[in-house]
Design a protein around this nucleic acid. Structure first.
Length: 186
DNA sequence: CGGATTTGACCGGCGC
DNA sequence: GCGCCGGTCAAATCCG
């Protein structure tokens, strides 16, 4: 349960013919940016929430980069303290943050999302968008935010796990393949 | 007409 | 206790 890659077989734009191109080469600096920001940016750190990044050795980071591009796993319990209804949801929800180089904010992962909010973020000129999975009974949420520092980078934070099948018809192999190319520089 | 967005209001937690 | 801030709600609006 500590490997979250399965959450994200593919991430891409739905209708664009060309994948998220851009450079997978400067991932290294993306990661370091991420870390640097965590000290002062509004996204991480700051207050309580403290999504502290899992400590990694540089070699591990390298492995990650090799496997999939920048990915940051975060296991910070967002404990919702008050079980508002009947004391059912005191479950801590780990959040998982991903960084992706993309021109567009909407990364379609195969699930259906309904936007339920948008807020301006401090220290960031771009707004953050809040989405909820529309599958009945599914409470998975995600936030999407673009970095001011590098507007080519989109940070997606997932909260919760899907316990249902993907809603999209994934029979479009060509599409999937084109998505996979993103992660395979060779 | 029904479902998804938009957008300002609202709310709870935390720091001062 | 008050005000800021991040997150959510919900009414109005949009769009197929």
């Amino acid at each position: 349960m500590e490997r979250f890659q399965i959450l994200f077989p593919f991430a891409s734009t739905r209708s664009s013919d060309h994948p998220v191109s851009s450079s997978m080469t400067d991932n290294s600096h993306i990661l370091s940016d991420f870390k640097a920001d965590s000290t002062s940016s509004g996204f991480l750190g700051s207050k309580k929430e403290s999504y502290h990044l899992v400590p990694r050795t540089s070699s591990e980071i390298n492995k990650d980069l090799n496997s999939q591009g920048a990915r940051v796993g975060i296991g910070s319990p967002t404990e919702l303290k008050a079980a508002k209804k009947k004391g059912e949801k005191k479950v801590r929800k780990p959040r998982y943050a991903f960084q992706t180089r993309s021109q567009v904010d909407i990364l379609d992962d195969g699930y259906r999302w309904r936007k339920y909010g948008q807020k301006a973020v401090k220290n960031n000129k771009f707004p953050r968008s809040y989405y909820r999975c529309t599958y009945q009974g599914c409470t998975v949420k995600k936030q999407v935010q673009r970095l001011t520092r590098d507007e080519g980078v989109v940070v997606t934070t997932y909260e919760g796990m899907h316990s249902h099948p993907i809603e999209k018809s994934n029979d479009n192999f060509e599409h999937i393949l084109s998505q996979m190319q993103i992660y395979t520089p060779f």
